[in-house]
Design a protein around this nucleic acid. Structure first.
Lengths: 310, 310
DNA sequence: CACATTTGTCTCATTCAATCATACAGTCGG
DNA sequence: CCGACTGTATGATTGAATGAGACAAATGTG
């Protein structure tokens, strides 16, 4: 590798030319005189050309030296610019942020955050892929993937943004048809809508307080493979179903749907940001993440009370 | 010094981008994979930015990486050009050759050589300073100084180009007025012209064969401070004087002037090329020197016979 | 002309980065 | 699931870079 072309010596050379002496250059660079002398000697050796004519008193660049200096200045300035640009890029978001998010959570939480993000950083562009599962973060050049639920591979670099609750809901009219006194343990025959997007769409474990748990194996009256589809069916009054809180909050508050068994809770899920295995996190990602965490915190702070008030 | 900006890493980075893999880049650079990996890691660390997203299988440049690569390519290409230019400059004469020479020798020998030199290297420019003594080779950016006579400081870097003889000459009419039977020992009262440019214009030591020497303290009828002036006076028939062979050759051959005491010789002098204390000799200097040596050799090979024939 | 000062270079010991060989872990095609 | 390939981690080793100090040369001063 050390074939040729040791670019670091250019720094020494230009420093000498600009300082006008080896000693001054050494001071400027913060190294010993001998180092400068040695580096210049090596550079001249590598080039096979005398760059500087030096007496103990006077220093002159040769014809070649001047020509080389002109080149060096340009090169070093460019290098400095390139380095600076990288560092700046690291400090301030710029470019394009590419992220994936599940459609449901994305629509509810991510989309507003993106709006705020674009407002805060107008020079940014954002590409969002609303898809429940994107395979390769690297191949698709994804900066950030938001996954809701339970991470299959916990080894990945991820950050927990928050949690969500799952709630059993139905339209008021459907809820009214639920026999009085029905509890989770006796809910198996209610008109369940199964969401095939979940790993275990039929089995639900309800909890109450610290210790009481009940697991129900439901018998669905219909099945869909997409969460939004299930939701639409539920809204249409087909039956009851389980959705994450961020999907149902607005409708519950509006009175369009009602929560069933409000004393009982279903397993919580995690909301995670998953990153490609990069050493450093770009500023654009960091900035977005900060806003997302904020939005998520605001959401979960409000939600529980809002739900309990119902 | 090692503060920042280790430019050598750029070489590694571009190699990886261009090769498309660490392993391929390592092969291309002729180093171990680990080295490339390490260098890239250091570069990213220095920049605080992830440049390459890497799995064991796939390699992708990040947005920053691509941008940095564009810069790197330009920088490296320029650096390569600069290096190449220097090397080429070392291999082939180019630019301006600046030299000094004494006026007399310069006119006789150097000038024709310059003509040939410019013919051989049309892209060259030559600056000649015809001056008998130029002080500072460095300050004046002199590539080459031609000194005739005896070097004051033999420590300087110099190369002997040849020697010259000094000959006592006069116009035929003046020579005819020299009393028959006059020998060097009895020549003090001849019409000497003293050349103040010489260190010892009055004292001349003649030699004959291996051992016979005679020193004369002359009584000049006139004195000048410049050799060409002395020569002009001699040509005008003012008197006799001593000049280096390269000045008188042509006129002797033409019959304009005559050598006196052709059996006797005066001290020889050296013709030297003196260089500034540079580590490397530029190609332009080397090439000129070669031609000068050739010209000088040709001159001294011809001259002795030509003189003896007279 | 001797002297002091400044400057670049040299020498030598030391430190640190670069390098390599090897082993390892993750990925992907079959 | 297995094997092949890739990037990374780990020490050991080499070599380059570095600094302190001595030295020689050049220059200005008196």
């Amino acid at each position: 590798m050390s074939d040729f072309l040791n670019l670091n010596r250019l720094i020494f050379f230009t420093a000498v030319v600009e300082a006008g002496s080896f000693t001054a250059a050494a001071d400027r660079l913060g190294v010993a005189k001998a180092v400068v002398s040695h580096q210049i000697a090596r550079l001249e050796e590598e080039l096979g050309v005398t760059l500087l004519m030096r007496t103990t008193r006077r220093l002159h660049a040769t014809e070649e030296g001047n020509l080389f200096y002109e080149r060096c200045v340009i090169i070093l300035r460019q290098a400095e610019t390139a380095y600076g640009e990288m560092s700046q890029r690291n400090a301030e978001p710029s470019g394009t942020l590419t992220l994936t998010a599940p459609l449901d959570y994305g629509a509810a939480v991510v989309a507003p955050t993106i709006a705020a993000y674009l407002l805060a950083y107008p020079q940014m562009r954002v590409d969002v892929i609303f898809d429940d599962s994107v395979s390769d973060l690297i191949a698709e050049r994804i900066d950030l993937s938001i996954r809701v639920g339970w991470l299959a591979d916990s080894s990945q670099r991820a950050r927990r943004l928050g949690t969500f609750e799952q709630v059993l809901v139905a339209t008021p009219s459907v809820a009214a048809r639920v026999p009085a006194g029905t509890v989770p343990a006796t809910s198996a025959d209610l008109p369940w809508i199964a969401n095939g997007a979940l790993k275990n769409p039929l089995r639900w474990t309800f909890s109450r307080g610290q210790t009481e748990t009940v697991t129900v194996e439901t018998r669905p009256i219909m099945t869909t493979d997409k969460t939004p589809a299930s939701y639409a069916c539920m809204l249409a009054g087909v039956g009851i179903s389980v959705f994450p809180d961020y999907m149902v909050d607005a409708d519950i508050r509006a009175g369009t749907i009602t929560r069933l068994f409000p004393d009982w809770t279903l397993p919580q899920g995690g909301i995670h940001a998953v990153f490609p295995p990069a050493r450093f996190r770009p500023a654009k990602v960091r900035a977005f993440l900060d806003m997302l965490v904020l939005a998520e915190r605001k959401r979960t702070r409000k939600t529980p009370e809002a739900l309990r008030d119902k």
